[in-house]
Amino acid sequence: MEFQSCFDIIGPIMIGPSSSHTAGAVSIGKFAYHLLGETLPNQATITLYDSFSQTYQGHGTDKALIGGLLGMGTDDTRIKQALNLAERYGVEYTFQLKESCPYFDHPNVAVISAKNSRQKVKVGGASLGGGLAKIFSINDYEVDIRVSTDDDLGGNLSSLIPRLSLKSRMEVLK
C-alpha cells in the first residue's frame, strides 16, 4: 500500500507540467536547500541521468531543481523564472548530462553538489512519480528517505543528521 492518504491521490498542488519530472525534482532540490541549513548555495553542480537528462528542458526539470535549491516549494510560481533568479541571487550553477546512474537504478535521477561559505552537501535523489521523491544518498552515504511534496522538511532534517552520522559510522565499520 504505497499510497496512504487521499492527498497522495488528489495532490500535490504543483507547477506543471509533470509530477515526476517537475514536482519530484523540486523536492530533491529543496532537500539540498534544507540540508544547507536553509541558506542559499553560491555554487551548485547538478548531474541529470537517463530520462531526466533526455527531457529536462521540456519538463522544466532544470528550473524545478534550481527552484528547490533556492528554497521554493512545488507550487511556487517563481519556478518558471528560477534560472534567472539564481543568477540574480549569485548562485552559480552547472548542469551535467549523463546516461544511466551508476549509484541508483531509476530513470529519473539527479545528483546535486552544492556549497556555500559554511558547508558543502551532495544529495542523490530519484523522482518516483506522482510527486514522490526518494533521497538515496547524502554526502556519498547511502540513505533511504521518502519525500512527499506535502511534507514540511524544515522540521525533519535536524533529526535526520544524527541518524545519518550513525549510518555513516556503520558504513566505515563495515
Binding site: I9, I10, G11, P12, I13, M14, I15, G16, P17, S18, S19, S20, T22, A23, G60, K63, D75, T77, I79, K80, G129, G130, G131
Partner: peptide, 16 residues
C-alpha cells in the same frame, strides 16, 4: 493547457 504552461495545477492523480 495551464499545466503545459507551467501554471499551478493539482495532480489528480498525476499532472498529466
Amino acid at each position: 493547457e495551464c499545466n503545459a504552461r507551467m501554471g499551478v495545477i493539482v495532480a489528480t492523480p498525476t499532472a498529466g
